[in-house]
Simulated assay, not measured.
Amino acid sequence: MSLSRRMLAAALSALTLLTLLSAPAAAHARPGDRSVRPLAQAHAHNDYEHSRPLFDALDQGFTSVEADVYLVGDQLLVGHDPEDLTPERTLESLYLEPLRERVVDNHGKVYRRKIDFQLLVDIKSDAITTYAALERRLRDPRYSFMFTSYDAGKVRRHAVTVVLSGNRPRAVLSAQRHRLAFYDGRIADRTDLGPGSDAGLTPLVSDNWTKLFSWTGEGRFPAQERARLRELVEQAHAAGQRVRFWATPDDDTPARTAVWEELLAAGVDHINTDDLAGLAAFLTAAK
């Protein structure tokens, strides 16, 4: 090999190494998921508490993730409590930007096969001001293309559906003719847009399991409670709504498995967990 060719080869090798070293860690995780089967009922509760927010859930095939947000100054910071917040952990850096890159890589989808994906934003600070800050980010052309929208009575589905939980600005959302966010209704309070309400505003209805059911997986599921669960799910589904419960057993015990089996049998749309691998294994085995 001539000197000039050796120099060119060395330069190309150095350039390749530099590119690999300088690439962001998230980029390596984005498109390489051909073997991951998305799990329609898998919801990552407090997803941001995992070592790799969003990506740990995506690696397990989750199709719904939950992020608690606080408005601090002009930043939307992600964390469970105010003392957990740090300036670099923003909604954009942990969720919006990685999802944007993922949707671009997958030609308009979060996964390579088309399946609905939910970003549940649990507002912990003031409802109206936090939503105003969130809406500015959702409408940013960098991100807006990937969000399901509501336009004058019509829902247009896209890669990611943003649903607001926690401190929800109900009146603001209800009055908007055009928006990129939806409302998480409550099952126990029928006045709070529960099962059977307008799915164009409230595509999701959620509640604390222990407020509605006494059974937590020990012994038999009381027949009356099983019937009530199925009635709630059927009512929501008839209106085009999805159903989620939180505060279900989440330790790796037979009780948890028993509750998950009943949720699955009833057609509950989002099974809530902090144990990503555990729920992924359960849902995969149940297929």
Rank of each mutant, 00 (worst) to 15 (best):
T284S: 13
L18H: 06
E66L: 02
M1A: 14
P195K: 05
S144I: 08
H270S: 15
L54C: 01
E231N: 08
R137I: 05
D33A: 07
V155Q: 09
T19I: 13
D56H: 01
K287W: 13
G219T: 10
H50D: 12
A227E: 12
V162L: 09
D105W: 01
L76G: 01
F55E: 00
V268I: 14
L279F: 10
V36R: 04
I187L: 05
P24M: 00
V163I: 15
H237I: 12
R256P: 06
D140T: 10
P141Y: 06
Y131A: 10
V78N: 02
D207K: 06
R186D: 15
A132D: 13
G185D: 08
G240H: 10
E97N: 01
L76W: 00
T216W: 02
Y131W: 10
P38T: 07
R102T: 04
N46A: 12
E231Q: 13
D252P: 01
D105R: 00
L94Y: 03
R6V: 07
R142F: 12
D140R: 11
R186W: 09
L8Y: 03
M7H: 11
H158W: 03
P87N: 03
W209D: 08
A132L: 07
T273H: 10
A247D: 15
L232R: 04
S64I: 00
A132P: 04
D116T: 10
A285F: 05
E262C: 06
T161M: 13
Y48L: 09
E234K: 10
